[in-house]
Amino acid sequence: MNILRLAGDMTHLISVIVLLLKIHSIKSCAGISLKTQELYALVFVSRYLNIFTDFISLYNTIMKLIFLGTSFSIVWYMRYHKIVRRSYDKDQDTFRHYFLVLPCLILALLINERFTFKEIMWTFSLYLEAVAILPQLVLLQRTKNTDNLTVQYIFLLGAYRALYILNWIYRYFTEPDYLHWITWISGLVQTILYGDFFYYYFLSWKNNVKLQLPA
């Protein structure tokens, strides 16, 4: 495993920790999209179907369990925790996320590397992850007073995607037969979706003001 890939995984892990820390310590999920979190839970379930059938490494299995566990606990907190659920911006988080699920499933049935159940679910998870941030970005744009932790969380998620692209470039040049167009294109689409956010993130950082996306 190369350093870019490890850095990507760690950034992803830290983003989840930041989010859980926010929810757990200040008992608030204000500014966080439940739609996006539910999509991520679905992404991990469909991608990690091989968790008990194909052993890759201890690192791989542990990370999969962490991502599955944390994504479901975040959804649980936002939906059912007595205090946390009160801070959820339900009226603002109106993105119809099932409109993303169906097209991704159809696309996975049409464009995949192999027509098997596991492979189609895996491809579906790639397509869905690419667009899963959309409800969160819409919510961010609508929220007036976004707290710092929410902004850091989204920044870390975007950084994780950018690092994965660098990892793919590195692997392409160092490993023979490493060619994965479906993963690369969906990963690229996903990173592009963060482009606008990154632009305003650096602007707010440079000018030392609170980040606010223009409506």
Binding site: R5, H12, S57, F67, W122, D177, Y178, H180, T183
Partner: peptide
């Protein structure tokens, strides 16, 4: 044969 190297990624 299609290489499955990508499957070691998360």
């Amino acid at each position: 044969i299609q290489s499955d190297s990508i499957k070691d990624e998360l």
